[in-house]
Computed example of a mutant assay.
Amino acid sequence: MNMIRLVGIAVLSFSMLGAPITSAQDLTSAQKNAVRSAKNYLSFQAFSRRGLIDQLSSPYGDDYDVADATAAVDSLSVDWNAQAVRSAKTYLEMMGFSCNGLIRQLSSDAGDKYTESQATYGAQQAGAC
Rank of each mutant, 00 (worst) to 15 (best):
A84D: 06
R104K: 15
C99K: 13
G61F: 04
S75M: 06
Q25I: 14
L42A: 05
Q118E: 15
L102D: 07
S58Q: 02
A110K: 15
A84E: 06
M94R: 15
S77Y: 12
P20R: 11
G111M: 06
A46F: 03
T120E: 14
V7D: 01
V66W: 09
D68G: 04
L27S: 09
Q125F: 03
S48C: 05
A46Y: 05
I4T: 15
A123F: 08
M95N: 14
K39D: 09
L6E: 15
D62C: 09
V11P: 03
S57H: 03
G8R: 13
A30G: 12
R5W: 09
Y60N: 11
R86S: 10
F14T: 02
Y91V: 10
G111C: 05
M1V: 14
A119C: 04
A88S: 10
L6H: 06
S43I: 02
W80T: 06
G101S: 02
D26V: 00
A24K: 14
G18S: 06
M94G: 13
E116A: 14
S48Q: 09
Q25A: 14
S48M: 00
C99W: 06
V66M: 14
L92G: 10
V35W: 09
S75P: 07
Q124Y: 12
S107R: 06
S58I: 05
